[in-house]
Design a protein around this nucleic acid. Sequence first.
DNA 1: GTCTATATTCCGATAGAC
DNA 2: GTCTATCGGAATATAGAC
Lengths: 181, 181
Amino acid sequence: MNDTRTEIINIANELIKSIGYNAFSYADISKKLNIKNAAIHYYFPSKSDLGVEVIKRNRAAFNSNVEFWANLDYRQQLVRYLTMHDGFLDNYWACIVGALSPSFDTLPENMQTELQQLVNAILDWLTDLLEKGKGGNVFSFPESPKVKAYMIHSAMLSALLMNRILKNDVYKSIRDSLMNI
Amino acid sequence: MNDTRTEIINIANELIKSIGYNAFSYADISKKLNIKNAAIHYYFPSKSDLGVEVIKRNRAAFNSNVEFWANLDYRQQLVRYLTMHDGFLDNYWACIVGALSPSFDTLPENMQTELQQLVNAILDWLTDLLEKGKGGNVFSFPESPKVKAYMIHSAMLSALLMNRILKNDVYKSIRDSLMNI
DNA sequence: GTCTATATTCCGATAGAC
DNA sequence: GTCTATCGGAATATAGAC
């Protein structure tokens, strides 16, 4: 029921994905909301509190997606995962993990912990999916499910980053190739 | 013959790869050299001048590597590429492309252009290697050489980022899997 | 409870000393 | 040619007004 708070989180989420955590300031958010930058501190005393909340939101969104896909067959779940960030393409956004990991060592400890938990949640889910799909002869790949999950996640994360730099077909090429397992 | 200038570039290179471009300041460099932060401005009037130089150095180093590998067979060249950043593991460094791409839109235009040229140089070389290796039946993969180059480069870039976050076997797993083509 | 005026620190950059 | 003293502005954050 706190609209300002929610809007702050949403704007911070967009800013992190478009320019990164260290590059945005409270002033960037307050300008859009027509309030003073210090007003943000009422909702989030320190910038890291806001950062933690943004990561938590992303983890909740991922968990919600996964739950929503639960009744789909393995291949369709993989496709959903691989197309999950298609909406980021036009704005050249990075995913939250790709946006935060280069400056990981500058993040406060609570943000680091949240980010690690998010990455582990994604990799655990993906590993499990690949394991079940491989066992059921839906997927075929030589690596272990865990290593394959590493590789798919890594390729997708970078695909968004490379899309921002090259502004060509790199994202779609990688995404579509990863579907062929 | 300008040692201070070279040291500045080397320190900036390390800082970008460990904490990112926006997170480091001239003070970080000047402290290590026991000079005042403003002294850096003599060598690099603006921070972006230093950023451009760091990227240029990385491109020169890559070109030098490639030249050095030129007489090796295709598979060995691939192995050299995949192990090129092994030395970054212990310090949890990102490669220059992975370090800069999340904040790409905050970078000055000359840095953006340099970074694009570096990425294209890497992808062009890798595509060419994969094409020759596939044609010579040294490598075997279903994708086009260009798309395969996208995928290998992306997986390696993220592998370094994930190594920083997870501090586990993710980098080596991805690297070794990519050798099996 | 919600937001503003203000403080403090640090940043990149300029002007000028040696 | 090399470096320092210093500026103007922006960042995060606190204290307190309403």
